[in-house]
Design a protein around this nucleic acid. Structure first.
Length: 566
RNA sequence: UGGGGUAUAGUGUAAUGGUAGCACAACUGACUCUGGAUCAGUUUGUCUAGGUUCGAAUCCUAGUACCCCAGCCA
């Protein structure tokens, strides 16, 4: 079903690669790169790009470099470099020895700039930022030439060298390409190649006080590394003529830039600026908050790398903006976790149940299947005794028609254990149910009735004296709006944060078999969902994150008009 | 208003002049010791209007809508 035999449908970029290989454009070589700026954590949108670039390289026998595009020391930090390398590795990709930094090319870039000045195609400009903006013109009006545009090559060389030496104050001079101030594409109106910036770079320290701009630097980075297919997002389409122009001025390898649409997901935001804001204003608990669409957040939440990679191949590649339903991501998640997660029983909203006809001090060890999807996962023993916990949601005193679980007088199965029948409901003075009394049928040990009688439902349970206390964190969408990027006039995206995106339950219980679970271990809590151990977890003080729920058809029935229930 | 892009079910994505297919979502039903999983099935689509053609999502013409660009960010 998932495979399509030899009839592989290729996205437009892969088709391009196939054609290039056919025509011999790059002599069969395929070299891509993933070029993040270390100014934030990677998110699921980056995963799309990572899987595209590394995926193409591996499918076509090529290489993919991990390259940090670190040309702006004001925003970049080593912490981000570390998180990015971790994330790419965790996703399962390998750049081998090809870890590069744009900052390692600063001298080469400088030399290339001198070459361009020598050919009369670049000049040092003394205009202020405001003047540059003013002279650039507008979308509909051409710009005006800078008064410094016609300096001699010698003067430009001299000034540029002195810029580098630190003779001029920040922002007082720039190096600009001499292209066309009337060009309809604003990017070609004498774009800035270097600015003076005294900021300590996380790798080069204070070696440089001039830094190359993206447009000037990026094509050079690609060229130096011998990239063939330089894949970037749609907003750089307008920059391609400039990418090409710079490289055409130099006697160097000329990669091809190809643009594709970035990923958008419902109920979340994907811009680094907005994610940074959530972190800095403490609207979430950090870049790796399990509600964040960051790779670190998703990992902490319990996502598997396989599920993310599968999602990235399913969504495809295109050239127009689209928003993927987060349900597809969750589908990929469940599909993978269903196959791989050990099942275990946990009760997150406990209700005490006493089995009146069960011996007071007896404990039995019952067999439970670890993973019905994977027989090799084997079985484990689960303790059963007189006093149990079940889920509050699994009992209703006055059940509607379609409620199949426990209620007064009704018999249900305790998973892997016994059939029980509710005989009495105990309430406190406020009328709240505090305890249930039941009887069990000893003949149904293991969960099967020798007389063949059926029950309408099977519920999970825990032996109260053996259960281990745990904290459980339930997550929901971070935003209440499907598209928080598109909010009504006068509203901010933060106005749509979901106040219920995190619910912490601290009176939960798990079965003793996972008492020693380690952070990031994944489980399925039967009938509740997939959970993983949070990094806040400590021995004796376990903390679980709900990665996602199981599909819940009862929840759906409940949402319908009550008429359906009665 | 200048330039650059893009339009296929609710969402996403194929079909490259020859039966509009797939996935998710939604809805039925079967099965089930997880109201899980699995299986079977149903609903919904080519931006609009013309034209070329035996035949158009695909080619042509004219519209419409949406996205990107006026950082010394990337």
């Amino acid at each position: 079903m998932t495979e399509n035999n030899s009839e592989q449908r290729l996205d437009f970029i892969r088709q391009m690669v196939v054609e290039d290989n056919k025509s011999g454009k790059w002599k069969g070589r395929v070299a891509t790169r993933f070029p993040p700026e270390p100014n934030g954590y990677l998110h699921i949108g980056h995963a799309k790009s990572i899987c595209l670039n590394f995926g193409i390289a591996s499918e076509f026998g090529g290489t993919c470099n991990l390259r940090f595009d670190d040309t702006n020391p004001e925003k970049e930090e080593q912490e981000y470099v570390d998180s990015i390398t971790d994330n790419v590795k965790w996703l399962g990709w390998d750049w081998q020895d090809r870890l590069y930094f744009a900052s390692d090319y600063f001298q080469q870039m400088y030399d290339f700039a001198v070459h361009i000045i020598e050919s009369g195609k670049a000049y040092v400009c003394d205009q202020t930022a405001d003047q540059v903006r003013e002279y650039r013109g507008t979308l509909t009006q051409p710009g005006k030439n800078s008064p410094f545009r016609n300096r001699s090559i010698e003067e430009n060389i001299d000034l540029f060298e002195r810029m580098r030496k630190g003779e001029f104050a920040d922002g007082t001079k720039t190096l600009r390409a001499k292209i066309d101030m009337a060009h309809p594409n604003l990017n070609l109106r004498d774009p800035i190649m270097y600015r003076i910036l005294r900021a300590t770079h996380h790798r080069t320290g204070d070696t440089w006080c001039i830094y190359p701009t993206y447009d000037w630097a990026h094509g050079l980075e690609d060229s130096i590394e011998g990239i063939t297919h330089s894949i970037c997002t749609l907003e750089f389409e307008n920059h391609r003529p400039l990418y090409d122009w710079f490289i055409d001025q130099l006697p160097i390898h000329h990669p091809q830039q190809i643009e594709f649409a970035r990923l958008n997901l419902t109920y979340t935001v994907m811009s680094k600026r907005k994610l940074l804001q959530l972190v800095e204003q403490n609207l979430v608990k950090g870049w790796d908050d399990p509600r964040m669409p960051t790779i670190s957040g998703m990992r902490r939440r319990g996502y598997s790398p396989e599920s993310i990679r599968n999602f990235c191949t399913l969504i495809g590649i295109n050239k127009f903006n689209s928003t993927i339903d987060i349900a597809l991501l969750e589908h990929c998640l469940r599909e993978d976790l269903n196959k791989t997660s050990s099942r275990v029983m946990a009760v997150i909203n406990p209700l005490k149940v006493v089995i009146d006809n069960y011996p007071d001090d007896q404990t039995e060890m019952l067999d439970a299947v670890n993973n019905p999807e994977d027989p090799s996962a084997g079985i484990r023993k689960v303790p059963f005794s007189k006093v149990l916990y079940i889920e509050q949601d699994d009992f209703m005193e006055n059940p509607p028609k379609k409620f199949f679980r426990l209620s007064p007088g009704r018999e249900v199965r305790l998973r892997y254990a016994y059939f029980i029948t509710c005989t009495n409901v105990v309430k406190d003075s406020a009328g709240k149910i505090t305890e249930l009394h039941c009887t069990y049928d000893p003949a149904t040990r293991g969960g099967d009735a020798p007389d063949g009688r059926k029950v309408k439902s099977t519920i999970h349970w825990l032996s109260a004296k053996d259960a281990i206390k745990a904290e459980v964190r339930l997550y929901d969408h971070l935003f209440t709006s499907a598209n928080p990027d598109d909010v009504p006039e006068g509203k901010k995206f933060t106005d749509f944060l979901n106040p219920d995106s995190l619910k912490t339950l601290d009176n939960c219980f798990i079965e003793p078999s996972i008492a020693n679970a380690k952070p990031l271990n994944r489980f399925q809590f039967e009938r509740l969902g997939y959970f993983s151990v949070d990094i806040d977890s400590r021995p004796g003080k376990l903390v679980f994150n709900r990665t996602t729920t199981l599909k819940d058809s009862w929840a759906k029935i409940q949402q319908k008009p009550t008429a359906d229930l009665i």
